[in-house]
Design a binder for these strands. Structure first.
Length: 415
RNA sequence: GUGGGUGUAGCUCAAUGGUAGAGCGCUGGACUGUGGCUCCAGUUGUUGCGGGUUCGAUCCCCGUCAUCCACCCCA
């Protein structure tokens, strides 16, 4: 084998592809039911778009972007996520002039230059949804409910919804200040990573996994105790509505999302069956981002589902059933082979999946192939049948056999 | 970027310091025009790559590449 796919980049083949297709079909059905329209976004964008939205200090921007100059020397980046493009698109096309909220979904590959591991690759697929133009908690609740319902429709069990509010630009600075005061006292006792986080993103210290850091941070101030009245009311209303719709969730005051643009509601769907990268979906509010992109002050919220992780969970409980041909036509002899092709074409025009052998071989091996393909029926044509204008048919599940006219092969299974 | 594990047939894996085998798969036959079950036969390898030690390396050592898992970080 001479060539390999690039590191962290995978081919998706049958039978897995059937799970992907099912997941996408179900997701789209839910999106349309909740009024989300598809948008198709470009895979490449101007690099600034990501720096501006995701944030200069994040790992994504700092070390994970596929960035390169195009032939005119512009800096181009393969999108590491979808929200930035969606916001750019919303502002660029003046979609704020349409009735609010505007609700969209998108799907496609994202790219991050990272070391691959379980549940993480350099090219990975997301299905994302974004809603622009409402700050009301009802839209937060609706998106979380939609996500919950579509995941459970797909049969996902043992997933957990984790929820938090990380405040707004009113209350977050004060919280951050009291948090850094808390950490500063014993900063030298934290792990090296946390010392870094202290200056880059102190909220992150809250979900460090190092034992000693976990002890040290006992008693650290909690975001939810520092929310301003508006954020508090927003979060309470969201929780109330989720309760009304019987959505189970856990509050996780340590849930911090990695991208700079998040405000208020933050949530993640996690599973213990995924390895270290356990989030199958994540999202939150980004009320300042549209304005940051030069649009009107427009609140917004979105989430993204990690497709590979979703598929991994689906594979725990089901195998993808490959579709099977309705008919396999076995032909014996050159003239029969020609007629078989004509009959197959007739069936296909009626929308029936018909397979041929594409080679001269024994009836036995042709039937073996029909069986391996999982065909429901085998049709058999040889010289004897041609002479009489008929075919033998055989139901490969029941073994039942009979004859039919060459002209009406579909009559065998359209009874 | 850091740490650890693993590289042998299409796939899953054995094996020995004396140049490799099984199961599955695939092809054919037993059954001259009837699949699945059974039996029989056939089929595939530069043992990831380069170097070193050795009379001799798939095995030991070094390097390299790939891959997996974890850290960082994220979907």
């Amino acid at each position: 084998m001479k060539y390999n796919a690039l590191k962290g980049v995978e081919d998706i083949l049958p039978p897995d592809i059937f799970l992907w297709q099912r997941a996408e079909t179900v997701a789209k059905a839910f999106f349309s039911r909740y009024g989300f329209s598809e948008i198709r976004l470009p895979i490449i964008e101007s690099t600034d778009i990501f720096i501006r939205s995701i944030g200069e200090s994040t790992d994504i921007v700092g070390k994970e972007m596929y960035t390169f100059p195009d032939k005119a020397g512009r800096s181009i980046t393969l999108r590491p996520e979808g929200t930035a493009s969606a916001v750019r698109c919303y502002v660029e096309h003046g979609l704020n002039n349409l009735p609010s909220p505007q609700k969209f979904f998108y799907t496609g590959p994202m790219f991050r230059y990272e070391r691959p591991q379980k549940g993480r690759q350099r090219q990975f697929y997301q299905i994302g949804a974004e809603a622009f133009g409402s700050e009301h908690p009802s839209i937060d609740a609706e998106m979380i409910v939609m996500l919950n319902n579509l995941l459970s429709e797909l049969g996902l069990k043992e997933v957990e919804f984790e929820l938090n509010s990380i405040g707004c630009e009113e209350c977050r600075p004060a919280y951050k200040a009291s948090l850094t005061d808390f950490f500063r006292n014993r900063l030298d006792e934290y792990c090296p990573d946390c010392k870094n986080r202290f200056s880059t993103n102190p909220l992150r210290i809250l979900d460090c996994k190092v034992e000693h850091c976990i002890e040290l941070r006992q008693g650290a101030p909690s975001v939810t105790d520092h929310l301003c009245a508006d954020c508090r009311a927003h979060f309470d209303e969201l929780l109330l509505r989720l309760g009304l719709m019987n959505i189970k969730y856990t509050l996780n005051p340590n849930l911090v999302r990695g991208l700079d643009y998040y405000t208020r509601t933050a949530f993640e769907v996690t599973s213990q069956h995924l390895g270290a990268q356990k989030a199958v979906a994540g999202g939150g509010r980004y009320d300042k981002l549209v304005k940051e992109f030069g649009g009107p002050d427009t609140p917004a919220i979105g989430f993204a589902i990690g497709m590979e992780r979703l598929i991994a969970l689906l594979k725990d409980s089901e195998t993808a059933a490959a579709p099977v041909p309705k008919v396999f036509i076995a032909a014996l002899g050159e003239e029969a082979d020609r007629q078989a092709a004509v009959i197959a074409e007739g069936l296909r025009r009626q929308g029936t999946w018909a397979e041929l052998n594409y080679a001269a071989s024994s009836l036995k091996s042709q039937l073996r192939k029909a069986d391996r393909l999982g065909a429901e029926y085998a049709f058999i044509i040889g010289d004897n049948e041609l002479k009489d204008g008929i075919m033998q048919w055989k139901n490969l599940k029941t073994g039942e056999q009979g004859q039919c006219s060459l002209k009406e092969p579909a009559s065998v299974f359209n009874k």
